[in-house]
Design a protein around this nucleic acid. Structure first.
Lengths: 187, 187
DNA sequence: GCGATAGCAAACACTTTGTTCTCTTTAATT
DNA sequence: AATTAAAGAGAACAAAGTGTTTGCTATCGC
């Protein structure tokens, strides 16, 4: 990709992220993004069809990265399968968030955080599902697997939301312990 | 309240609900609501300041009712405290949803369902918290109560979302059983 | 029936959107 | 360094949506 293109793309993403820290997604106008990013109107529309399209692109950039890295992690340690392994995928994910790559914390803290968390949950659901396939679990066979998968990814995302709303007072390791306490008894 | 006022209010709510079944919240315009409800522009703005204001009013009408009824329920049976009581608050809530009063199912099924579920979760959180206060629980004292409250209301809402996305194939009683299976072990 | 209140319709100023045009700048390649 | 193709800037545009005002009519509660 052309150096200029990368530059504008970054400028737009970064302006958008800044604006999201102040205002809700629905209240941000394309014009404001353009002004903050210091690009021409035409340029914006050459990169993204609409504001929604920009949001989607940002989400893909954010979570593609994080989930990809978590996927690698599951190859060595599978979910919570082996009891007391300190390295769980969830802990890894939380540490990754903590690092705040691409200002992901700002986006998950903003007024419109739910948009991002919903996107996050969808990606996470796939990850959890892929791990559920080859796993020796407790005899919860009367509870549908699909329900459990949703429960795990759903409550993980709700935990992240809780953590962030509470100003992230816990370390990823603490959070991981909490999460284990509510998830391990049922899988 | 004036009979005419009630009539327009209902017309607007109902038009808004119909539109939400087709299109996402953000793509619905005030003009469309006005046309669908067959009211004058001035009339709409006499009732609601903005589209967001209308949404808020609708949510309050919906969940005020449901949560209020669940509150009564918790007076007799407290959450899941007494082991195998068939009447849990959660089951009650699910049955209430199933009745589809005020077309709540349509709203929770629509493209913008998350807006409503988020509102639902906030109300639910209060309900769960109020029940947690006077309750003899397991010795999970090293896990913060606040975390557990969030986990319970969060995963309930995620379950409802899962249920609705899966076209509500389970009965409220089945769902309640699933939910018990993942919640009772930890409280 | 009467006064008060709610609703309607049209027009309004204003904002936002997405497109089109022309012109300038920059990158990659030779 | 010169060339060419692509990218960006800026202005202007129609179209659509918002929220308000004004003048008039219909309806409610008493």
């Amino acid at each position: 990709m052309d150096r200029r293109q990368r530059k504008t793309r970054t400028a737009i993403f970064s302006a958008f992220t800044s604006l999201l820290a102040e205002r809700s997604y629905s209240k941000i106008t394309v014009q404001e993004i353009i002004d903050a990013a210091n690009v021409g109107r035409t340029t914006f529309y050459a990169h993204f069809e609409t504001k929604d399209d920009l949001l989607k692109a940002l989400c893909e950039e954010l979570f593609g990265h994080i989930i990809g890295s978590a996927m690698d992690c599951t190859h060595t340690h599978g979910l919570y399968s082996d009891g007391s392994a300190p390295e769980s995928v969830f802990c890894h994910l939380l540490q990754h968030l903590q690092e705040n790559d691409k200002n992901i914390i700002a986006l998950l803290s903003c007024e419109s955080s739910e948009i991002f968390l919903r996107f996050f949950k969808d990606s996470l659901n796939e990850l959890v599902r892929s791990q559920f396939i080859n796993q020796n679990r407790k005899a919860n066979t009367d509870i549908p697997e699909d329900f459990l998968i949703n429960h795990i990814s759903g409550s993980f995302v709700e935990m992240v939301l809780w953590w962030i709303r509470g100003r992230r007072k816990q370390t990823p390791e603490e959070l991981d312990r909490y999460f284990r306490a509510v998830i391990e008894p049922i899988i």
